[in-house]
């Protein structure tokens, strides 16, 4: 390697470098252009379709948060306010009271409130709810299905891929636009979002 052709060699290197830089730059520009068509300014968040949900109980275990960011919500509008609530009471309960031996919820997160004869209101204490879906299963099989699971966005970290979605057997989890982040029964009906 003689010193004469050194500048020439350096020139060639610079040329290759600049060429590569240009190529990479152009590819980034094209990616940007393509993405402009594909992207949405609306952010996406995770939500579960309560009509697809099979109450498997994985929401309680698989969420990256403990307790899970999936909670039971109550669509009061659909509730029959039954005294004998399949979501609140264990099957074949000893008595229709709030006593521990009669409650289905493992963390006593459902509050039962007397309204008027014969109606009772059921409310979820989200601080206690762990999203195990036991009450949801009870309400869906014996009642109106007004108790159902939803991702609560004040708790959800909105992981890029939801850890529950990955293992959901019913493929109930989906990304929804941030502008309509809930699929609460009543307002949202079956088949609306596919």
């Amino acid at each position: 390697m003689s010193t004469d052709n050194l500048p020439k060699k350096m020139d060639r290197r610079r040329l290759i470098k600049n060429g590569m830089q240009l190529t990479l730059g152009l590819s980034l520009v094209s990616i940007a252009g393509w993405s402009a068509f594909k992207s949405t300014s609306d952010r996406l968040v995770w939500q579960l379709d309560p009509f697809k949900c099979v109450q498997c109980g994985r929401c309680a275990k698989e969420c990256v948060m403990t307790p899970s960011a999936v909670k039971c919500v109550h669509a009061f509008n659909l509730c029959g306010y039954c005294d004998l609530c399949g979501g609140y009471l264990k099957p074949d309960p000893n008595a229709r009271t709030t006593a521990a031996e009669n409650q289905l919820c493992p963390t006593a997160a459902i509050k039962r409130k007397y309204i008027e004869d014969p109606y009772f209101e059921y409310e979820i204490d989200e601080a206690l709810c762990i999203g195990c879906a036991k009450c949801v299963a009870g309400c869906t099989s014996f009642g109106n299905g007004s108790l159902h699971l939803q991702v609560r966005h004040d708790r959800c970290k909105n992981c890029n891929e939801c850890a529950i979605a990955r293992v959901c057997p019913a493929e109930a989890f989906q990304r929804v636009p941030i502008s309509s982040p809930y699929l609460i029964k009543g307002g949202f009906t079956k088949g609306k979002n596919g």
């Binding site: 521990a100 493992p106 963390t107 762990i130 195990c132």
Partner: peptide, 15 residues
């Protein structure tokens, strides 16, 4: 609380 075995056993006895 989901895996708890004691309470279901007790409730069974109660039934």
């Amino acid at each position: 609380p989901i895996e708890n075995k004691t309470i279901p056993a007790l409730v069974k006895r109660l039934n």
